[in-house]
Design a protein around this nucleic acid. Structure first.
Length: 287
DNA sequence: CGCATTTCCTGGTAGC
DNA sequence: TGCTACCAGGAAATGC
């Protein structure tokens, strides 16, 4: 039952609005700060997820930017510090009680340490030469930023017309647009009245334009609410985002569609739980 | 290259 | 109380 699943399993993975909120909170703290050293935590997994941390020492953080769900900090020595929060990663100034993966010691005024906590180890925190994104293929091929003017219906239509994938799978791939994950994919598709498994290249220009607009609107509204907190996601200050109250589709299967009253259904798309309205969101040509 | 499938990983929960 | 089984999922790795 949906209510039980929400109580038990809902996890708010950081998507664009959550990462944007984190980025805004980090910006005044970290910009122009010199890094003394960046170190793996006691049980950070070895390997590429935490590569190159030793490179950060002595470099200054020039800016805190965001590309999709990635936080990208250009460093003065020609490197980039790149963070992906995964599903449960958090950044903050307080020493976490457990699951500490990275600590970055800063010169100058307090707070002087940035901590990366990541219980489920899906996150990444690495340093690489500027522009070398070979360790992050998704970032290397990431689609347009949905909240920038360059994300137009025509640009989006060009991307969707090239793919025969189901539209939700394409959204989650990050290639057609950056920053949309499971929650906002379900929300945008519900708003645009598009079935999650509709082949991307079979959607009409009008449907694509509606989806482009829905993506922009839902992300913009959530950024304003400082993201969605269902359970795991916390802002840098530990507070919750407030967009959860505005969720109309994600995780509401078994409950009535607020638009037509029919019961929202659930299916699995690319291993992701997916909620949609079988009445409002129909496959093209399907009736 | 495109796309599908598998893997990574822990915490919460149901059920016993 | 403590155990097992299972489920949540973004991106990378792997397979065709």
């Amino acid at each position: 039952m949906a209510a039980a699943r929400r109580a038990g399993y809902d996890v708010a993975m950081p998507e664009l609005p959550e990462v944007e909120t984190v980025k805004r909170e980090l910006e005044p703290w970290l910009t122009k700060r010199k890094i003394i050293r960046a170190e793996r935590g006691p049980d950070a997994p070895a390997g590429p997820k935490y590569a190159g941390l030793e490179r950060a020492a002595g470099q200054t953080i020039e800016a805190v930017t965001r590309l999709g769900k990635f936080i990208v900090m250009p460093l003065s020595g020609g490197d980039e510090l790149i963070v992906h929060l995964g599903m449960t990663g958090t950044l903050g100034a307080e020493l976490p009680r457990d699951h500490l993966r990275v600590a970055v010691e800063l010169a100058g005024r307090a707070p002087r340490t940035l901590y990366f906590r990541d219980p489920r180890r899906f996150g990444r925190f690495l340093v690489a030469p500027d522009g070398d994104r070979s360790a992050l293929p998704t970032l290397a091929k990431i689609g347009p930023e949905p909240l920038e003017a360059s994300f137009t219906p025509a640009v989006f239509a060009a991307a969707t017309s090239r793919s025969g994938m189901g539209i939700k799978a394409l959204l989650l791939s990050q290639r057609a647009v950056a920053g949309v994950g499971n929650i906002y994919a379900d929300e945008a598709l519900w708003r645009a009245k598009i079935h999650p498994e509709a082949p991307a290249n079979q959607l009409s220009k009008a449907r694509i334009a509606a989806l482009q607009q829905a993506i922009v609107e839902v992300l913009r509204a959530s950024v304003e609410a400082r993201g969605t907190t269902l359970r795991d996601y916390r802002r840098v200050d530990g507070e919750r985002g407030e967009f959860a109250a505005a969720i109309q589709a994600y995780g509401r299967d078994g409950e009535p569609c607020v638009r037509c009253g029919k019961t929202l259904a659930r299916l699995v798309v690319g291993q992701r739980g997916t909620t949609y309205c079988p009445s409002c969101q129909r496959l093209p040509k399907g009736g």
